[in-house]
Simulated assay, not measured.
Amino acid sequence: MSLLANLNQDMKQAMKNKDKQRLDVIRMVKASLQNESIKHGKHDLSEDEELIILSREMKQRKDSLQEFKAAGRDDLVAKTNIEINILKEYMPKQLSNDELATIVQETIDEVQASSKKDMGKVMSAIMPKVKGKADGSLVNKLVLKYLNN
């Protein structure tokens, strides 16, 4: 089932359950998907394009969460955490730290990276492999860790 069909089905269920927060998040994701399809002049987005949009929405929430925590806005922290949990339901299964470390090490070996200067080369090779399955900042930290060894 496509993401949009899944969102429509979940939106109906959220309306029936009177789950306002879930409904708001679903509507927000649907709006982002529709805006992107209009921007690209397409009727249907590919799975990769949908995943990019979901990842962008997740990143925005995580960035906001850090700012709300720093500002001491516990009300917004709680709301944003709920939104992140709802978005996670639509994201692909995340890689474990061990799986991610293995991919990072293999990619470093593939591109024959040896120092921090090769960081861009390694990151550009890894990100397509882990798109949507791992947080970019976590990948970045692991690459730095392995290149410093």
Score class of each variant (00 low, 15 high):
residue 62 K to A: 06
residue 58 M to R: 10
residue 33 L to G: 01
residue 65 L to F: 11
residue 60 Q to V: 08
residue 5 A to Y: 00
residue 74 D to F: 03
residue 45 L to H: 11
residue 32 S to N: 11
residue 80 T to E: 09
residue 56 R to E: 02
residue 50 E to Y: 09
residue 80 T to L: 02
residue 15 M to P: 07
residue 64 S to I: 00
residue 41 G to A: 09
residue 70 A to N: 07
residue 37 S to I: 01
residue 71 A to E: 14
residue 51 L to P: 05
residue 60 Q to E: 05
residue 21 Q to C: 08
residue 75 D to L: 01
residue 70 A to R: 14
residue 31 A to M: 14
residue 4 L to N: 06
residue 48 D to F: 00
residue 58 M to Y: 05
residue 63 D to C: 03
residue 64 S to D: 01
residue 48 D to C: 01
residue 29 V to C: 10
residue 31 A to G: 07
residue 16 K to E: 14
residue 26 I to P: 12
residue 79 K to Y: 13
residue 16 K to P: 09
residue 3 L to F: 05
residue 21 Q to T: 08
residue 20 K to E: 12
residue 24 D to V: 07
residue 5 A to S: 09
residue 35 N to Q: 01
residue 7 L to Q: 11
residue 28 M to L: 12
residue 60 Q to R: 12
residue 31 A to V: 04
residue 70 A to F: 08
residue 23 L to P: 08
residue 6 N to W: 06
residue 38 I to G: 05
residue 18 K to G: 11
residue 57 E to D: 15
residue 8 N to I: 13
residue 79 K to D: 14
residue 75 D to F: 00
residue 39 K to A: 03
residue 67 E to S: 15
residue 21 Q to W: 04
residue 36 E to F: 00
residue 45 L to R: 02
residue 29 V to R: 05
residue 51 L to W: 02
residue 66 Q to D: 12
residue 40 H to C: 05
residue 9 Q to G: 04
residue 71 A to R: 08
residue 72 G to M: 09
residue 39 K to T: 01
residue 25 V to I: 15
residue 28 M to F: 04
residue 20 K to R: 12
residue 77 V to Y: 05
residue 26 I to N: 07
residue 68 F to I: 15
residue 58 M to T: 09
residue 51 L to A: 02
residue 68 F to G: 11
residue 6 N to M: 05
residue 28 M to A: 10
residue 63 D to F: 12
residue 64 S to M: 04
residue 67 E to V: 15
residue 73 R to C: 13
residue 29 V to A: 12
residue 45 L to M: 08
residue 74 D to L: 00
residue 59 K to E: 15
residue 9 Q to M: 08
